[in-house]
């Protein structure tokens, strides 16, 4: 495979200048909370890496994390408003070779499953496995079948030889929505369905933010190890501070009702049920959709979607929380 172009070469083919490439490396370093000295290391790693094979598994999911992933596809195009620079996430398609992805891949049926088998054989130990959705264990797993196999068996065989497994989204993290009480299908996250995985990273969120997926992968390419993780295996660069701490509404008077003067003026939403004070996520700083906005900015309280078992621990969403 000596004819594979490096990530930098791919970018240059797509009209990205060397300067723009370095600027996106700098943005990546900032997102990862690394010093500017890391920019060179990132640039060197990306310039010499070929695209990493990815097997993206969807189980009990809503495809929302895939939609989030698709929002990373952006490159400079003077014809499209606002897209002057390669954004932080614009490297995504250039960094990865997504060999298996039910929603996006062209191949179907036998040929689709062949793609997964080919990558597992050809790139054993060298591919990233991304898991989206929970894994049901009721009925011996027979409530999620793909190609006649259970989600559980597919997760076991695919994560076993992965370079790194990323549980992307709250459902893959800890079972998420399907595992909400009373968990009718005995749904589990990757960590409980396939216990003992090393090199497992959690990127919870409903959906998870693609910026944090790309940053995690770039960190791995640069330093050949996972970024620092908290006790829940979440990267600390993304889950190290509360939403409330970085919220621009924090210092303003609390709104009492949606649409009242304080709500319109940008007041704090704690009285309306905002979970920002108890939720660790970089939502207010990286925002969504290429930095356009985030839920609290748009006027609705945080629902705490990066917390464990958030569908049970954060609900009812409009009730109060303890003031810490």
């Amino acid at each position: 495979m000596s004819n594979q172009p490096s990530i930098e070469q791919e970018l240059i083919q797509r009209g990205v200048t060397r300067r723009q490439f370095l600027r996106s490396c700098a943005l990546m370093a900032a997102a990862l909370a690394l010093p500017t000295s890391a920019v060179d290391a990132i640039a060197q790693a990306l310039a010499s890496s070929t695209r990493l094979p990815v097997i993206w598994l969807e189980f009990q999911d809503c495809t929302g994390d895939t939609e989030s992933f698709l929002r990373a596809v952006q490159r400079p195009d003077p014809a499209i408003n606002g897209a002057q620079d390669p954004s932080l996430t614009s490297l995504l398609l250039d960094v990865l070779s997504v060999d298996y992805h039910e929603t996006l891949m062209v191949a179907a049926g036998y040929q689709a499953e062949q793609s997964r088998a080919d990558t597992m054989a050809r790139s054993a130990g060298q591919y990233i496995c991304v898991v989206e959705g929970s894994i049901p264990t009721a009925l011996n797993g027979y409530c999620c079948l793909i190609g006649g196999k259970t989600a559980l068996s597919i997760a076991e065989e695919t994560t076993r030889n992965a370079l790194m497994t990323v549980a992307f989204g709250s459902c893959a993290f800890d079972g998420g929505l399907a595992a909400a009480s009373p968990n009718p299908t005995a749904a589990k996250g990757v960590k409980d369905a396939v216990p003992g995985l090393t090199n497992l990273v959690h990127i919870p969120g409903c959906p998870a933010n693609v910026v944090n997926l790309v940053a995690t992968i770039v960190y791995y390419l640069t330093y050949k190890k996972l970024p620092a993780l908290d006790s829940l295996k979440r990267p600390t660069f993304a889950y190290g501070q509360t939403v409330h701490r970085n919220c621009p509404r924090r210092e303003l008077d609390e709104a009492g009702a949606y649409g009242d003067a304080k709500h319109r003026a940008g007041g704090c939403l704690k009285e309306l049920g905002c979970r920002g004070p108890v939720t660790y996520h970089n939502c207010p700083t990286v925002k969504w959709n290429d930095g356009t906005c985030w839920p609290v900015q748009a006027g609705h309280g945080c629902i705490g979607c990066t917390n464990p078992a958030f569908w049970d621990t954060m609900t009812p969403f409009y009730g109060g929380i303890s003031d810490d």
Binding site: G64, E67, S68, L70, R71, A72, V73, Q74, R75, D77, I80, N81, G82, A83, C206, P207, Y258, K287, W288, N289, D290, T292, C293, W294, P295, V296, Q297, A298, G299, H300, I303
Partner: peptide, 26 residues
């Protein structure tokens, strides 16, 4: 279209904070 959809759906982010799953209903 991959580029276009990423731009166009900022419509949801402006009114609802994010896409997918805009968070603004009551």
């Amino acid at each position: 279209a991959l580029e276009w959809q990423n731009q166009f759906i900022k419509f949801h982010a402006i009114l609802g904070g994010k896409n997918p799953h805009p968070q603004t209903y009551l």
